[in-house]
Write a protein that binds this DNA or RNA. Sequence first.
DNA 1: CTAATTTGGTTTCTTAACGCAACCTTATTT
DNA 2: AAATAAGGTTGCGTTAAGAAACCAAATTAG
Lengths: 156, 156
Amino acid sequence: MARKRFDDSNCSVARALNQVGDWWSLLIVLHAMHGTRRFVDFHQELGIAKNILCDRLARLVDNEVLKKVEVGEHGSRFEYRLTGKGRDLFPVVIALRQWGDKWNPAPDDAGLNLRDRATGQPIQAVQVHNTKGDPITVRDVFIPIASAPGRKKDSA
Amino acid sequence: MARKRFDDSNCSVARALNQVGDWWSLLIVLHAMHGTRRFVDFHQELGIAKNILCDRLARLVDNEVLKKVEVGEHGSRFEYRLTGKGRDLFPVVIALRQWGDKWNPAPDDAGLNLRDRATGQPIQAVQVHNTKGDPITVRDVFIPIASAPGRKKDSA
DNA sequence: CTAATTTGGTTTCTTAACGCAACCTTATTT
DNA sequence: AAATAAGGTTGCGTTAAGAAACCAAATTAG
């Protein structure tokens, strides 16, 4: 029966994917981060069907990733702007971009050159660090057996 | 007509989402990071339909995120293990988990307690940094106007 | 002032994907 | 010898995605 939803999952990754884990949502957020605000601009830049775009924008607004604001004086023009929650997806998007640049480079493209406004330098690679500041991989972490023993380690 | 694919997109985020951007793939990778390797374990832990799991595992293997290895002596048991490419999704998963923990906390759940094996301490939040090491947000970055001017800032 | 265009959608229809359940084959266990 | 487990495959019904057409309100062009 259709797509399974994870609103009630006890895994925060599943809950996150429930909000931005479909094909279009993260791309919409990405373009919003690059300055796109208008329906038609999302439509043209993404090549997304308009009904799907309607649905995704509405869902992102429902989930408070975007907010829909009327622009102009009589309310027939709208902008979709990132909320704080939406802007907080920045590390996710950057991590995904880095992964894509590293493992699936386009033949012609050298990756998007994002730079820091303050320094003018490219941004650093996103990494996971321990409290000492050392970068760590998935092999360096473990899940302490603390709460709710006897269960699976991390269900769905 | 079905789902649009982005294999040829000049955006690495779109290409990345093409490989792990569906509902299940990242959850499979997440569970693989937590140690799951067997078909039946993915099936039970995720509650995913078996045909969908087959498809996703095959696609993740095709995309070299997982590798399928025979275990046992006569090749009727398999394990799906993360490749280096798959393990490199660690920052993506962690960033997504942090976002979910922050903005969609489960009422009962205090977030998964991931710890560094070396220090025993919880891992640090994933952030984007500039070259000076300062954390930056989406508002601190810009795209230098270098190649291909006159175009949109970043198509699809 | 009227016609065309833009914006932000909604509707219809077709096709593809998801989910369930049943089935299947090859081991292994009882 | 029968039952169970692993790792799927096959049908089938439901749902979601995509294209294209249509639409109303507002703006711009002529």
